[in-house]
Write a protein that binds this DNA or RNA. Structure first.
Lengths: 210, 210
DNA sequence: GATTTTCCATACGCCTGCGTATTGACATCA
DNA sequence: TGATGTCAATACGCAGGCGTATGGAAAATC
C-alpha cells in the first residue's frame, strides 16, 4: 500500500517526524478546538501517521500537552521581547503591546481557548446570546449618559471586556490577589476610569497620537 | 437495603426529584468544574440516586446541560433586572452593574468556567504563570510612565483584563463584530482610555463619588 | 553488507461514560 | 383493593480514546 506523507508532501524534504511537529499540530488543535479536543489518534491522522509514532516521541497525552504549552509560552515570550520590550519609550511600548494584543495570530487564539473551551456548540450559542444582550444594555446605559451610539458601543465593549477579564483574573491569579483590600481598590480604579461623561476622556493629554 | 435520601435528608420534605434539582446540581458542577465535567452518573451520586432516575427526567446529557444553562440564564437575567435595570440614574446604574459584576456569586463562576475550562491542573498552572509575567511587565511599563506601584498594578490588571475580554469578544460575537472597521476604532478607543499619564484621569468630572 | 538504531503500523486490552431495557417500589386514584 | 402512574435500581451493550506489545521497514553506523 505505502500511502505516506500525504500531509507534508509539498516541498518538505522531511522523512520522519520529531516532537516539534507533534507539538505544533497540538497547538493548532488547542487554538481552534481547545485542550479537551487533543486526541493522539486524531493528531496522528493529521500528521499522516498512527499512534505507534506518537508513543515513540512522547510518554503519554499529558506529556504532549505540557510540551506543546511550553513551546507556545516560549515563542510568545520571544515575540513580546522582540516587538514590545525592545521599545524604549514606555508610551510607545504600551501602544505596541495593545496593537500586538489585537493581532489575531495563533498565540492569542491559544490563550483564548485555554480561557474558553468552547467546543460544544450549545455553549457557544448561549454565550453569544448572553453577551450580545449584556452589551446591548450596557450600550444603552452609555447612550443614556450622552455617548453617541458608536462611542457607547465601544465603551460597552471595553467595560464588558474588563468584566470578563476580571473574572478570569480572580480565578487565574488565585493567591497573588488579596481577596480583601486590593479588589475593592481595583474596582474603584476601574469604575473611575470607565464611568464618566463622554467628553471627560477625549481631552487627550498624552504626547502620542494613536 | 433501602438507603435513600442521604444527600437531602435534612429538613426537606421532598420524596422525589424533579428536573430543577438536576439542573441546579449541574450548574454547581459547571460552576466549579466546567461543562466537560458534567457526568450523569456523578451528578446522580451527588443527588443520592442512580442513572435510572436521570433518564426518566431528561432524554440525554445534552438535554440536561441545555436546560441547566437556560435556567442559569433566566435567573441571571432576573438578578440584572432587579438590581441593575431598576435603577433610573444611568450613572448609578452603571455603578451598580460594576459592583454586581464584582460579587463572587454562582452566576459569575458559571460564566467564567464556560469561558475557561480549567479542569486540567497543568493548564491552570501555565496560565497563572504567564498571567503573572504579563502583569509584571505591564506594571513596569506603567511605573516607567510615572504611576505609583499600587496604581500601576491596578492599571496593569485593568489593561490585561481588557485584553482577555477582547479575545473573548472576538470569538464569542463572531459576526456581530465587523472585522475591518470597528476593531481598529475600538482599539483606538481602548488605547485612548488606558494609555495616559497617571494624573490625566484622576480629575474626576463625574457627579458621583465611587 | 550486516547490525543496530530510528521511526512507524497493527492489534489488542482496558477503562470511562453514555444510553437502553427491564424490573420494582411506592403513591394515588378509582 | 386493584389499576395506573411516578420515580428509581440494576444490568447490559456499546463507542471512544488511552496506553501497550510486538513486529517491520528504512536509515545510519560500523
Amino acid at each position: 500500500m505505502m500511502k505516506q506523507n500525504k500531509a507534508i508532501s509539498e516541498s518538505t524534504k522531511k522523512k520522519s517526524l520529531n516532537p516539534k511537529d507533534w507539538e505544533q499540530a497540538t497547538l493548532e488543535v488547542i487554538a481552534h478546538q481547545g485542550v479537551s479536543a487533543v486526541a493522539v489518534e486524531t493528531i496522528a491522522r493529521v500528521l499522516g501517521v498512527t499512534k505507534g509514532s506518537f508513543y515513540w516521541h512522547f510518554t503519554n497525552r499529558k506529556d504532549l500537552i505540557i510540551a506543546a504549552l511550553k513551546r507556545w509560552r516560549n515563542e510568545d515570550n520571544k515575540v513580546i521581547k522582540q516587538r514590545v520590550l525592545s521599545v524604549n519609550d514606555p508610551y510607545k511600548r504600551l501602544k505596541t503591546w495593545f496593537l500586538l494584543s489585537s493581532e489575531p495570530y495563533q498565540s492569542h487564539l491559544i490563550y483564548a481557548t485555554l480561557l474558553a473551551d468552547r467546543q460544544h456548540s450549545y455553549v457557544s450559542k448561549v454565550l453569544k446570546e448572553v453577551t450580545v444582550e449584556r452589551l446591548s444594555y450596557l450600550q444603552q446605559c452609555y447612550q443614556d449618559i450622552g455617548y453617541t451610539e458608536t462611542k457607547a458601543k465601544q465603551q460597552a465593549l471595553l467595560a464588558y471586556s474588563v468584566y470578563v477579564g476580571y473574572l478570569h483574573m480572580t480565578k487565574t491569579l488565585h493567591g497573588q490577589f488579596k481577596h480583601d483590600d486590593n479588589i475593592e481598590a481595583y474596582v474603584k480604579h476601574v469604575a473611575g476610569q470607565l464611568i464618566h461623561p463622554p467628553e471627560a476622556i477625549s481631552i487627550d493629554l498624552s504626547p502620542q497620537n494613536l
